[in-house]
């Protein structure tokens, strides 16, 4: 429920459908989050980040009538952001390499996470840079779910909506991603 005049995303969407200016409020809400997300996905250059963000919001506005409450607005925006980041890689013909090394705080949260499988990372007392590099080396499909789960703190159902894959596949990909990380980190000298 809106409190003290603060509107929910969904209410703002409804208003933006009739009055363009309200979309500006949604841009304000999501600009920083999505910029961080596309950087994590591997868009490095700041100009490129700005271009991708512009495309994300134009696409979101153009397709505003596609959005309905079957999923959250946040998931919908992240989905568009994910697709636009991939389009950007395709246009530039580059392989995405995330900037996770700089996300030290998130990486440490990931390392300290109580989720099954993360103990090995914690026990190894590896530094954030090492873990960040290991995550960057994962295949895109694994890296996408790891970023959303541990860096964007999304729930499984949200990841399912963003990547358009079944929830069961999210769990499977996360499980395999952890296995691959564990394998890579075991080979790191700091683990010895």
């Amino acid at each position: 429920m809106p409190v003290g005049g603060i509107k929910t995303d969904e209410e703002l969407v409804e208003m933006a459908r009739n009055q363009r200016e309200f979309f500006g409020l949604l841009i304000e809400r999501y600009e920083a989050k999505l910029a961080r997300y596309v950087r994590r996905l591997g868009v490095r250059d700041e100009e490129d980040v700005a271009d991708v963000l512009q495309e994300i919001f134009i696409k979101a506005y153009r397709n505003l009538n596609e959005f309905d409450t079957a999923l959250s607005f946040s998931s919908w925006m992240y989905r568009i952001a994910h697709n636009e980041a991939i389009n950007s890689f395709r246009k530039k013909r580059v392989r995405p390499e995330g900037h996770l090394v700089s996300d030290s705080e998130d990486i440490l949260t990931f390392v300290a996470s109580t989720e099954k499988g993360s103990e090995i990372l914690f026990d190894a007392a590896l530094d954030a840079a090492v873990v960040g590099r290991a995550v960057s080396h994962l295949d895109n499909k694994y890296r996408d779910v790891v970023i959303l789960r541990f860096f964007e703190h999304k729930e499984y159902d949200e990841i399912s909506d963003i990547l358009k894959i079944p929830i069961g596949s999210v769990a499977t990909l996360l499980h395999r991603a952890k296995g691959r990380l564990r394998k890579e980190l075991k080979e790191h000298p700091a683990y010895e």
């Binding site: 459908r17 200016e21 500006g24 841009i27 134009i58 506005y61 153009r62 009538n65």
Partner: peptide, 18 residues
């Protein structure tokens, strides 16, 4: 927002998605 205004971008009709 400027680009949306300048290019006169408008939401596609709902029936397209439906």
């Amino acid at each position: 927002m400027m680009r949306i205004s300048d290019d006169a971008v408008s939401p596609r009709a709902r029936w397209v998605f439906v």
